[in-house]
Structures are given as C-alpha cells and as structure tokens.
Amino acid sequence: MDLFSRSWTALRTAVADLPDAEFDRPSGCAGWLVRDLVCHLVIGAQDVLITLVTPADAEPTVDAVGYWSVVEPPTGEDPLDALIPRLAAAYGEPRWLRFHFDDVGAAAGRAAELADPAARVSTQDKVLTVGDFLSAYVLEWTLHHLDLIAGVPSAAEPPAETLAAARTLLEGIAGTPFPAAVSDRDALLVATGRRPPTDAERAALGDLAARLPLSIG
C-alpha cells in the first residue's frame, strides 16, 4: 500500500513539474507522445477508482504477479490504443490535461489510502486482494514514470524503493531473477524492451536475453 502511494505521488509530481513544451515530444512508450502517456494515466487512475469500488466475494484467483500476463507486443490496432492519442489531442493546451490528471489522480490516491488491503476486488475477470491490486500497479506507475522522463535528463527518477519493488514484480512475471549486475532501472527498461541491452548487459543476462523483451498487459 505504501509503495503504491510513493510511486503514484512521484509520478503525479513528475507530471505536474513537466514543462508544457515537453508534452509534444516522444515518450519512452513507443508510439506515444508525452501527452498520450498522460492521457493513458488518466484512464489508469479511473481504472483504480473503478476497481476499488468493485468488491468480490469469491476467493482470489491471482496475486500481484498473476495480475499481469505476458502478451503479444502491441500492433497499434487495438481500438483503445488508437483512441488515446485522439483524446489527448482533444485537451488542447497541456494545462487542461494536467488539471484532469491531477484531479482524478488525487482521487485515486485517496481511495487507495482509505482502502482495506485485505478486501477483495474484481477486475478483468480476476479476483485479488486490494493489497495485491495496488502492488501490481507499482510496476505500472514506475514504468510509466520512466517513460515520462525518458527525454528529460533533469527530471526526478522514480523512488529507489519503488524501482526495486517493480523489478521484483517483473522478475516474478519472468519467472527468474535478473542479474544483480544490472541496476533496477536498467532491468526494467531492458526487460520490457524500452531500450536494447548493452553488450555487457546481454552477457550478464545470458540465456534470459533470448526471452526478452517481455510485453505485459
């Protein structure tokens, strides 16, 4: 629960501090401008709010790792993926997109803080505890924080503890730990295909390199 709040607060702060001119540059998420990414985060915040008020009586079917699945890389043909750039452009000035994100994002953050971690919720035909649901989103927020600041070297990085937690979760999805020689940040970027591994990283990854990148959804 605490890591969710830390990762979400850091990401919201990064969006708030981003100069308007940066909204039209490419993000670290392939095919999306920064404004598209922020629009996706608005939808993510809405998903958190919806899930937290969708209680379930059944036993959990997944945990934080099982919430994610390894999927085929996006082709750009998904209707929602195509819709997001149009929605982002409709905001016009970055301040309106920033305002909406801050408004919905603050609500999602408050809802997470008030939620019972042991309660069970349902989303995407899965049942899991609130604690596991919010833990799963630490990976989402941390990766998108890295996407947001990919072209802004002066921007603040995600907190070290959330980078470490996101790495651990991604290792669970991969079914194997990543080499200790690869930093948390680099492990996240390389394992999800956000950048290719260096020669040294490829050597450290060994046979695991052939299984990368992982596309998760």
Rank of each mutant, 00 (worst) to 15 (best):
T129R: 10
A45T: 02
I149F: 06
S215N: 12
S7V: 05
L208V: 15
D24V: 11
D147E: 08
V190C: 11
A115G: 03
V42D: 02
V53I: 13
A21N: 03
P158D: 11
R195P: 13
L169S: 07
W68F: 10
G175K: 04
D184F: 06
L148E: 12
A21Q: 13
R95W: 04
R195L: 12
L18C: 11
L11A: 11
D57S: 14
T142F: 08
V53G: 00
A112Q: 05
D207H: 05
A10P: 07
Y137L: 15
A160V: 13
L146S: 07
H40C: 08
G172T: 03
G31E: 10
T142N: 09
E113P: 00
R185K: 15
V65D: 02
A156L: 11
G151D: 13
V53Y: 03
A21C: 01
T61M: 01
L11M: 12
A107T: 12
T198C: 08
E22Q: 15
A174S: 11
T168W: 02
V48M: 08
W32C: 06
A89Q: 13
L52R: 07
V130K: 01
T192Q: 10
D78Y: 00
A187F: 09
Y137P: 00
A21M: 01
R95E: 13
H100Q: 14
W68D: 01
P26H: 09
E77L: 14
A88W: 01
V62W: 00
E171K: 03
F178C: 04
A165S: 13
L128I: 02
R35L: 05
T198F: 02
G175H: 03
R110W: 13
P158E: 11
A187N: 01
P85H: 06
L80D: 04
D36Y: 02
D125R: 14
V42L: 10
G31Y: 08
W8H: 15
T54A: 14
D184M: 07
P179D: 06
S183W: 03
P197N: 10
G109C: 09
L146T: 08
L128V: 03
T61E: 05
C39M: 14
A209D: 12
V34A: 08
C39H: 12
A30P: 13
D207P: 12
V38P: 05
P159A: 11
G193Q: 09
A58F: 00
A150W: 10
F178D: 01
A111N: 03
F101G: 01
P19R: 10
V127I: 14
V53D: 12
T168S: 14
L11C: 10
T13L: 12
L80N: 04
T9N: 14
L169A: 07
D125A: 14
L18M: 14
A209V: 14
F101I: 02
E77K: 14
A210N: 02
T51G: 00
F133H: 07
S122F: 00
S183A: 13
A89W: 04
R6E: 14
A204Q: 09
T51R: 05
L87R: 12
A204G: 06
F23K: 07
A204I: 07
P213T: 08
P19C: 10
L33M: 12
V182N: 01
P19T: 10
H40Y: 10
S122P: 00
V121H: 03
T162S: 09
L3I: 03
L97G: 06
P196S: 12
D81T: 07
G76R: 04
A200T: 15
E201H: 05
H100M: 11
A187Q: 05
V71P: 00
L139M: 09
